[in-house]
């Protein structure tokens, strides 16, 4: 027996922390950390729903596995873009003044 509201609250906190990370970080890689946290919140909601509702297709777990895979592909491409950005501009500062560079 488990209270499904607790995982949902944790998912809300994770999503909030992720949004804060995306909005408040100047370092491009640390902004991606926020994106990862938002995706983790989505996975937690899927798993919780899948575990407390009977489902012959196992949608909650399977969709979470898919989300994890897509997140891995996303972070690989995003980090490649960040590396290309670093080589082209010499920094990964998202709020860099154009006059400074």
């Amino acid at each position: 027996m488990i209270t499904p509201a607790l995982p949902m609250l944790l998912a809300a906190v994770l999503a909030g922390a992720g949004v804060y990370g995306v909005l408040a970080r100047r370092h491009a890689v640390l902004m991606l950390v926020g994106v990862e946290l938002i995706l983790a919140a989505a996975g937690l909601v899927l798993v919780t729903t899948g575990q407390v509702t009977p489902d012959p297709l196992a949608s909650g777990a399977v969709l979470t596995l898919f989300v994890i895979t897509i997140a891995a592909a996303e972070i690989v491409v995003a980090l490649a873009v960040v590396m290309a950005l670093y080589r082209a501009r010499g920094h990964v500062d998202l709020q860099h003044e154009r006059s400074e560079s």
Binding site: I2, T3, A5, M8, L9, V13, T48, Q51, V52, A61
Partner: peptide, 17 residues
């Protein structure tokens, strides 16, 4: 938090995953 907890409620349910 308010929306999700309102959807699932605070009652305890068995884990049937």
């Amino acid at each position: 938090g308010v929306t999700l907890t309102a959807v699932v409620g605070w009652t305890r349910v068995p884990v049937t995953g």
